[in-house]
Design a protein around this nucleic acid. Sequence first.
DNA 1: TACAAGAAGCTTGCATACAGCATGCAGGAA
DNA 2: TTCCTGCATGCTGTATGCAAGCTTCTTGTA
Lengths: 219, 219
Amino acid sequence: MNEQAILPVVRHSLHDELVERIRDMIIEGQLAAGERIHEGQLGLALGVSRTPLREALKFVASEGLIDLVPGRGGIVRRLTPQDVRNMLDVLTALETLAGRLACRNATDAQIAAVRDLHDRMMGFYAERQRLEYYKLNQAIHTAIAALSGNDFLAAMHGSIQSRLKRIRFIGNESPGHWASAVREHCEMIAALERRDGEALAEVLTRHVEETWSRVRPVI
Amino acid sequence: MNEQAILPVVRHSLHDELVERIRDMIIEGQLAAGERIHEGQLGLALGVSRTPLREALKFVASEGLIDLVPGRGGIVRRLTPQDVRNMLDVLTALETLAGRLACRNATDAQIAAVRDLHDRMMGFYAERQRLEYYKLNQAIHTAIAALSGNDFLAAMHGSIQSRLKRIRFIGNESPGHWASAVREHCEMIAALERRDGEALAEVLTRHVEETWSRVRPVI
DNA sequence: TACAAGAAGCTTGCATACAGCATGCAGGAA
DNA sequence: TTCCTGCATGCTGTATGCAAGCTTCTTGTA
């Protein structure tokens, strides 16, 4: 038997599928902030019974996207400006740590991979393709978190990112904001390639503040 | 009607109760690391049916104490030394941020309350009452996180604390370790009262490293 | 007309039932 | 004797049913 050719069967559990779908529905606004989640209705729409749906809701609730009120079920959490500011402060702490660790631990090949993401992102910036730019932007931040070599840090970072995704997406993208964000990204990749952890941490901090000034008006 | 006197009725939902119980069972070692969780059995022991129990398990799984394997249910996660080291790195980042914010934002009364916790803890240290000491120790760290004024930060801090609780509790408490931990706590409260954020951050970092050297041998 | 009380409907929370898959054991073949 | 195959058992995953509580509408009263 050729061992090499065997791949384990992909077990797509209904649970993961539902969690993913619910998250997306919140991020995309199909489930609006403050809205009550109707289990029967949502289950019907997704084609599952209430039991697995409820289990998925508990899971998402634990991540903080949903509040569970006893006797009244799930309610999509509404993020106040203070909430977002709080999350950004934590995000800064995590990203600067990740940046410092990445400069210390990442291999040259890993850094080159981030450079590649960066270059492709710059291409989309040149063409003003906002959605593609946005996706690569997220991917770069996720990649830096992963380069830290600290899985737990990367997971927490990912969790905050996904909670802020909706805010980020609807954020006010003026050309001025966009240009400075791009400038910061250039500094970032340069600092990473120099393995200058302090410089990377500094620009990551500035970058989050830039995000704050961009999303603040729309919350 | 005196609005101030009105407190919402405590709704002890079965869900919260179960989540709490499962967490405790893991922390106290009744559910051992690596052990498979038998839903029927556990449900019987707790006096509930599988449905609410499963929902609680999903919730706890999202916090990272349990792994869910499709078709095989829940397994209590086993923390490797690397996992603990990773979590401590993140904990350091969060605690130093909290410390800096606390020095800036806390009221004198709030700081006095922490001083009170500290003094009581020192009393238990003098009497070598380890369990009481331990509880107040935890409470002080939780209080500093809360003093940051950043709810989200405090919640994340609490989540990491609870995941590490088991490790901390079984950690090797030699008299030498204990003495240096106490010394650090004295520096902590002094820095907080001086509102010296940098000093507080520095001692908090040292304190986590002290924890690491203490728990490292027992993981 | 406004407000309160009650009733009906609907929704959540939990229990139970059933189907599919994992696991362990026994029997047989190499 | 050892390893493999097939079956039995038991557990997980999902659906469904039922009771308790929340909502809302209606009706009666001030």
